[in-house]
Design a protein around this nucleic acid. Sequence first.
RNA 1: GGCGCUGUACCCAAGUGGCUUAAGGGGAAGGUCUGCAAAACCUUUAUUCGUCGGUUCGAAUCCGACCGGCGCCUCCA
Length: 469
Amino acid sequence: MQIYNTLSKKKEIFQPINPPVVTMYMCGPTVYNYFHIGNARSFIMADIVRRYLEFKGYQLKFVMNLTDIDDNIIKKSIEENKSTKELAEFYSNMFFEDLKNLKIKKADFYPKATDHVQEMIEVIKKLEEKGFVYVVDETVFYKVNNFENYGRLSGKNLKDLESGVRVEINEDKTNPLDFVLWKKAKENEPSWDSPWGKGRPGWHIECSAMSTKLLGESIDIHAGGIDLIFPHHENEIAQSEACFEKKFVKYWMHFGFLNFQNEKMSKSLGNFFTARDVLKRYNAEVIRLFFSQTYYGGPLNFSDELLESAKKGYEKILNLAIKIESELKIQNKSNVIPDFNLQKYYDDFSSVMDDDFNTPQAIAIIFNCIHDANKIIAGNQNIDVAFYVDLKKFLQVTAGGVLGLIHFDELMGNAKVSLENDLIQLLIKLRNSLKIEKNFLLADKIREDLNQLGIKLEDSKTGTTYKIK
RNA sequence: GGCGCUGUACCCAAGUGGCUUAAGGGGAAGGUCUGCAAAACCUUUAUUCGUCGGUUCGAAUCCGACCGGCGCCUCCA
């Protein structure tokens, strides 16, 4: 399989360092806020990458960090009159809740920056020994000029960068591009002891320290949003490779922005919707389908119209899934076993996903399969249950397991023992008697009233099914 | 100023030299089925890929110019 590598700006054959193990690190959130739907795009696409690699048989070691100390957290903790720890814990919990609701699989580790300060200090000490740092008033800076590959990831060279006017002027820096490894504590700020005095780590150092600790000095995949390429990931490379003298990351993956009205959705612009708000209106599967219909690396616009269209697409998958479940309940045995070669869809799915996770094509293949299956269902009566068993398996593995677009175990009416289900079944029976009596007026009223409650009845030759909107 | 991305039907979007006179989803129009709906099925909806040139036997795909849109260079997924 191939992965587009930001470092080479090319698709490269994927060869993990120690197969079948694959080490993957994803830059997680700074926990001072609910994350927005644009952040969710990165988390979901990384989740799909991870799931697909597992589908391919790799043993993933997947780490996502939590930045629980930084300027934003300190600022907000003062505003809200809480400790930084309290604040970070609250938003960490919210983060996990949102991930769960987006049906994102758990990482193997979620290291927190504040639990790894000692590891970070060790890295900085090594950098100091190797002559990559200078200290000004208890603040430690990384000397960018001493790292020869600086700028390679972002395709910049030091000269171009220096001519950039927007770099913050800091009199303590010898070069404006030098960045902070260790920051001297101000009054009343949370701080840790270090060889340079009381302070706290700079932003970039945590990823270098924690990824090394949990995954080793060289890892296979490092992922994050496209805006992290510079300076964050550039600086991570500078730190790690100067410190350990090994290639830090083999494949760099970056996720494109989610735009709103053609503009990057971002916290600073304020043009964002939190993932949890969007989840109130659209379920995880719809959101995941929406994201998967576009290549992960490019931009994507966010709007209700587009989500509505994804929702319709999701319902197409859902309708077939419901049909499958109802057939599996009936367990029809017959000699009508259609000639339906699912292997072709499996092969196509793998081959497009192998090509740098081409989820839009993968989805096209799933929809082709759904269409072909529906065609067979429409054209044959009395199909043997074996057909549905195989079809379910295909959808479960591809649309479900890899893309997270359908969850059979959560389908409504799936023999769930609940009062709600029993009541709906009762109304369906009642309505069917009315239909036999040709009392369509009342039958339609039941259907319409249930529809008002968000319960949609659908009649078919094999009976009446319902789904909840 | 530097670096980079992008422009495909009514909307979203894949395809990046011949398999494509261009996937898939949504929308729209007509039809089948149905008591009626819904779902599903069938048919139709880009000889064309921002514009203009060039390379090639052959281009949406390569090259050049031009015109739009966006991003990074500052915290951000």
